[in-house]
Design a binder for these strands. Sequence first.
DNA 1: GCAGAAAGTTAAATTAGATTAACTTTTTCT
DNA 2: AGAAAAAGTTAATCTAATTTAACTTTCTGC
Lengths: 120, 120
Amino acid sequence: MQLSKSIEDYIEAIYILEQESKTVKSIQIATQLSVSKPAVHKAMDELQKKGLIEKTSYSGIELTAKGRKLAKEVYAKHMLIYNFLLQIGVSKETAEIDCCKIEHVISEETIACLKKQVHS
Amino acid sequence: MQLSKSIEDYIEAIYILEQESKTVKSIQIATQLSVSKPAVHKAMDELQKKGLIEKTSYSGIELTAKGRKLAKEVYAKHMLIYNFLLQIGVSKETAEIDCCKIEHVISEETIACLKKQVHS
DNA sequence: GCAGAAAGTTAAATTAGATTAACTTTTTCT
DNA sequence: AGAAAAAGTTAATCTAATTTAACTTTCTGC
């Protein structure tokens, strides 16, 4: 499945919010990603069409098994890049900003190579 | 000056083409970046408005001093990331693809840290 | 020097992702 | 329970970057 950058951001945000609060509300995602409520709404439509989340009107949002699997992959990539950046001396603040962007454009091959760099 | 990803791609393409052929034509840029002629045309309008290129109707395209300075910066970033990727074992093909995307999203701080990694 | 090809330009339409404004539904608090 | 606030939804609009189609200008080769 080919996901757009923004869809990856949304699914990752849901995954992170899921771990903090039992049910994930649209407004939390909007706050987390600094986007408007309608932007979240449209993105949730999209995620639902792709079978990545479950949601009925005015209810909470839940990842499906498929959605959670994907979210975990995105998040793992995020953490790998983040840790690599810290390791080479980037500040936490910048590492967080940069890895959010890099995670959407980096190839699997490069991810595999980075994996060997981290912790070494 | 805050440049969009696509504008950075165009200016970088001009910089590279400038070194191969004396005058840079719109069609060469279109071929290089795999975009349509009108896309190049609009981008050139934009670059001209920003004072980064010189161009009169139906003539060749030239970087201004300001444009060349910027192009060099973008290109240097490109090569730094490319070389780093090779160094960690990424193939040339993938390194080229990935660095083209990473160069548009990476911070100056991370670039500085990467610089210390390359060649070491 | 002129016809056809190549390059450049213009206009209109498309796409993805967002926004604001206005409205509806749900929640919360007294 | 009902009013006010909060959250969700819908509609209309915007922007950036692109495309196709059609047209104009320039170049090239006979």
